[in-house]
Design a protein around this nucleic acid. Sequence first.
DNA 1: CATGCTCATGGAAACGATTCCATCATGTTT
DNA 2: AAACATGATGGAATCGTTTCCATGAGCATG
Lengths: 332, 332
Amino acid sequence: MSMRRTTIKDVAEAAGVGVATVSRVLSGGSASPETRERVLTVATQLDYRPSALGRNLRQRRSGGIGLLVPDVTDSFYGRLADGVLACARSAGEPVILGATGDDPEREAEMVGMLLEQGVDRMIAIPSGSGEIWEPTLRTGLTAVFAHRVPAGRGDVPAVLADDRAGVRTAVDYLTGLGHRRIAYLGGPGQEQRVAAFRETLGPLVDEELLVFARGSRDSAYAAAAGLLQHRPDLTAVLAGGNLLGEAAVLAARELDLRVPRDLSLIMFDDVPWAELCAPPLTVIAQPAQDIGYRAAELVLRGGARRPRGVLLPTELVVRGSCAPRGTSRSPR
Amino acid sequence: MSMRRTTIKDVAEAAGVGVATVSRVLSGGSASPETRERVLTVATQLDYRPSALGRNLRQRRSGGIGLLVPDVTDSFYGRLADGVLACARSAGEPVILGATGDDPEREAEMVGMLLEQGVDRMIAIPSGSGEIWEPTLRTGLTAVFAHRVPAGRGDVPAVLADDRAGVRTAVDYLTGLGHRRIAYLGGPGQEQRVAAFRETLGPLVDEELLVFARGSRDSAYAAAAGLLQHRPDLTAVLAGGNLLGEAAVLAARELDLRVPRDLSLIMFDDVPWAELCAPPLTVIAQPAQDIGYRAAELVLRGGARRPRGVLLPTELVVRGSCAPRGTSRSPR
DNA sequence: CATGCTCATGGAAACGATTCCATCATGTTT
DNA sequence: AAACATGATGGAATCGTTTCCATGAGCATG
């Protein structure tokens, strides 16, 4: 029924040369011009496509790069993945995608699966502590981290947005508008941002105004609603991601808080709907696609380089969700 | 430096059995209880993980399933991919992701790449005509199509949303509100929907009100803006996807058309931001995640089944972007 | 002319699993 | 007791490639 795939052996036979020669020609090794020509002709005639299976086994590594993101559903990671795909495509490398759900256990499981597949180059948005990665990195794996680094490890190749600057800009902008009680609504693994937040806000920082959600929408909403409910005195919120921003808008609406009159809101990550929102959301734009692309470049370029981290700029995009502090949100 | 991975041979040696026995134990073949126990113990002690490389070569197929979507950045496909990942994970199968950009050529290229990788099970949102798939399907590939089928091929396994019913419901809803000049703003490969649109609208259909964009945001905006500009007499738009809906909202805003007073809008695909939009968008919800999950189930369940297509229900979610036809959008 | 060097070349050995097949021990049937 | 069925077991072949190594030809140098 379905005839065998044509193998390198078939080509060798048809061209009257040895398999080694065919392999050499096809992978750019040395060969005499006429042999090369003949092999190439025969190969196209037979529509030969080398099987990655054989090659992978021999070289003890599957080509291809693994990509581990918390949630493909999140626009930010979607764009990041898109960047990775773009770069991988131009290099002809397949991308194996896994969703970790921001769960270290699942992350470890996926890493294991990738290793089993022979994948030795990965890009990850790490969820957990560095311990998961310690043993893995030692096996000769080339890993590039994107968007954040494993907790407790600063010396790994990574492509990051300039979170510090982003937070600083946002907070300065808010304080400049007169806001004093500013909340940070964070997600998993945002130590950098929180640190920058604390640092920028200085003595104004109020520990109760730092709240964190897990990755899910529900969790984000719960955190946002809880925050707004318990602390009616806050006048501005910085949301550390588009899911959290969405949750903040929803929660504010539910509590009849008008944005920006009653509550100013800045969201990390510029998404298409930020403009469609009422009011349009002021955001800190991050180059998600670039992050992915650069990470892929790094991981393809090979491992031993030590560009300890690429830092990509963020940009404050002012729209309509921030206003000078008013007195409208009166104490009871 | 980095010692060799432990192979099946190591396990066999350490357990004092042959490699065949180890393989059998590990893949659930027959073995005496004590042998099984011993092998299992040794395997865990040595932290043995079978290499997919060896297995794949032997069985002449890489495990893993290929997933081809037009654009991971699009929330719909993001959710679909998430569904696929969820199912694949529970089966322990890796997923190789590719973005086709709704370009048949790129699609063909990616299929080629997947075949080269030994992938023999794929899920695709096909961009092009069936011709791309004809030869491929003949090679013994198990393919399941999702969201739409290759043009000109109805007899392939597919998981689809019930587009006909969705369109019918939406159009009926709009005509029930008094609308007569209803436009359809479509994307690539939406023949089904257009047919249903024509069918439902009957004599009211106006060919000029059927406009199509390619996959990109720019193209979507251009189409939407062109439509609204050229035909100020239309009172309702049905957008065939969240990108198109977004474009319609933007274009309407640009032209100072108030939704829903001047223009009623229904969008295919319920996305989180539909609720945040001003006004909240009335949508036809599609179970994107389910589509992906079911497609993965189908492709994992194996090929020869003939469930010609799974049809998943859509649901009209009424929010605030539709109103009874008014007279406000006056002729000049 | 002999020696050595550079190439192109093909045979064969990996790579790490699965699986066919022959072997052997055990238990069952006549 | 002989013949036979059953089941566990290990050796070896296989998958399709890359790559090591030996061979031989051609050529320049001494």
